[in-house]
Amino acid sequence: KELVLVLYDYQEKSPRELTVKKGDILTLLNSTNKDWWKIEVNGRQGFVPAAYLKKL
């Protein structure tokens, strides 16, 4: 499993997105899109802007 660090808080703006908090370490599911990465948070899957995340 690949992990990502959340660099900035992000509030979901659609049902396909997820809310994340700065400092969270989460599972990366897909990073093929350069702008939006798919991650998992508490069993939910969704997208967060790639600029808000850093691969560990």
Rank of each mutant, 00 (worst) to 15 (best):
G43C: 08
Q11F: 14
V48R: 00
T32P: 04
L26V: 15
W36I: 04
E2Y: 10
L28P: 00
V48P: 00
G23Y: 04
L26H: 15
T32M: 12
D9G: 05
D9Y: 03
N30E: 15
E40W: 05
K13D: 07
S31K: 07
A50P: 07
G46A: 06
Q11K: 13
K13C: 11
K1I: 14
D24T: 09
L29F: 04
K13G: 08
Q11R: 10
W37K: 01
G23I: 00
A50M: 04
D35L: 13
D9I: 01
L28H: 01
D24Y: 06
L53M: 06
P15W: 09
I39K: 00
V20Q: 00
Y10W: 09
F47S: 04
K22S: 09
P15M: 10
D9T: 06
S31Q: 10
E40S: 08
K1L: 14
N42S: 10
V20Y: 04
L53T: 01
Y52H: 15
L29S: 03
L53A: 01
N33R: 08
L53K: 00
P49H: 03
L29A: 05
L18N: 03
V4N: 00
L18W: 03
K1E: 14
L28Q: 01
W37C: 02
K38Q: 14
K54C: 14
E17M: 06
K34S: 12
L18M: 14
V4P: 00
W37N: 01
K1V: 15
E17K: 07
K38A: 11
V6G: 01
P49Q: 02
W37L: 02
G23E: 02
E17Q: 12
V6P: 00
I39G: 04
R44N: 14
Y10F: 08
G23C: 06
S14R: 10
A51I: 12
L3V: 09
S14V: 04
W37T: 02
R44D: 07
V41S: 15
E2I: 12
I39T: 10
K22Y: 05
K13L: 11
K54N: 07
E2S: 11
A51V: 14
L18P: 01
Q45Y: 09
K54T: 13
Y10H: 03
Y8Q: 14
N33L: 09
L5D: 01
W37I: 02
L18H: 04
R44S: 07
P49L: 03
D35W: 14
D9P: 06
E12N: 09
T32W: 09
V20E: 00
Q45N: 10
N42I: 08
G23P: 01
L18T: 06
K34T: 11
N42Q: 10
K55M: 14
Y10T: 01
L56G: 02
K21N: 09
E17H: 07
K21M: 11
N30Y: 06
R44A: 10
R16P: 09
K22W: 04
I39A: 12
Y8L: 11
S14M: 08
N42V: 07
